[in-house]
């Protein structure tokens, strides 16, 4: 089909793709450039190049603290979100029960709430309950938004799960728990893994929910914002670059793992036909 397309059409597709890629990634490149100056302020074009701010950033105790907080929140969110979302997805896609269709809609609704409003309402709630804002409340806030996303991601895998696999294992003498551990969990693993990746990255990069709910603790996106508003140094783009590249790297590795898992599965679909 492609080979039949006229040349001008192919060129147009390429031009369009290039434009989109540049549009999306040029700001990221600027971030990188901005981090590689040795002067205090961001002046374009850069006159004095250097990695001074990279060294300073990596040496900073404050930055280490930021990483720890962000990682801790993202890690807790991932573990809790995946656990809730897995069973939520089973209820969502696997079992037929009264009220399932309403549940399917309600559980996905938080995805579409404006996050700043969600953050504010959670803050009001936590205050009403007399809780002190900290990374723990932020974990909870993130979960409200991330569990639905995670549920959706895992549901896709659950939909393609053949319930006969569980029945076969049960029939072969396995207990319910063995069925879950030996069959359900490993077969759903690619979906669970994607869900975990989503949960981690969405929590890692989240700003609006953290802003309202972290209290005295600070995450990387919050810090970046605060520094932009007041007290800019090229340490900001350094941190931004590290945070973004780290996330992208994680995504790539994760994607590679999923592709590998899927490829192994793909063979099964072919031989079933």
């Amino acid at each position: 089909m492609n080979s039949l397309a006229p040349r001008w059409r192919t060129s147009l597709i390429w031009a369009w793709t290039a434009a989109v890629v540049i549009f999306m990634y040029l700001p990221g490149l600027c971030l990188l450039l901005a981090s590689m100056t040795s002067s205090r302020y961001f002046i374009f074009p850069i006159t004095k190049w250097g990695f001074a701010w990279w060294e300073k950033t990596f040496a900073s105790l404050e930055i280490h603290q930021l990483f720890q907080t962000s990682l801790l929140i993202a890690f807790c969110v991932t573990v809790i979100a995946v656990t809730i979302a897995l069973f939520g997805a089973l209820a969502f896609a696997r079992y037929d029960w009264k009220g399932r269709s309403i549940y399917q809609k309600i559980v996905l609704l938080p995805i579409f709430f404006p996050q700043s409003v969600l953050g504010l309402s959670l803050l009001l709630w936590f205050n009403a309950l007399g809780l002190t804002m900290s990374w723990q409340t932020a974990v909870f806030a993130h979960l409200v938004w991330i569990v639905p996303v995670c549920t959706l991601v895992i549901s896709i895998q659950v939909y393609s799960f053949d319930p006969a696999l569980e029945e076969a294992a049960f029939d072969l003498g396995a207990t319910k728990w063995q069925v879950f551990r030996e069959v359900t969990l490993p077969v759903l693993f690619p979906g669970i893994f994607s869900g975990a990746l989503f949960a981690f990255l969405l929590s890692w990069g989240n700003f609006p929910l953290s802003l309202y709910t972290t209290g005295a603790d600070t995450t990387i996106p919050e810090y970046l914002y605060a520094k932009m508003v007041a007290g800019y140094t090229p340490g900001v783009p350094v941190l931004g670059t590290v945070s973004t590249v780290g996330a992208a790297g994680l995504l790539l590795v994760g994607y590679a793992i999923i592709v590998m898992l899927r490829r192994r599965r793909a063979a099964s679909d072919q031989s079933e036909v």
């Binding site: 053949d162 006969a164 696999l165 029945e167 076969a168 294992a169 029939d171 072969l172 030996e182 069959v183 490993p186 077969v187 693993f189 192994r264 599965r265 099964s268 079933e272």
Partner: peptide, 13 residues
């Protein structure tokens, strides 16, 4: 007792 399913239900992993 043991059943052989129409889909066979072999464990793909």
């Amino acid at each position: 007792t043991c059943m052989v399913f129409q889909s066979l239900a072999l464990f793909p992993h």
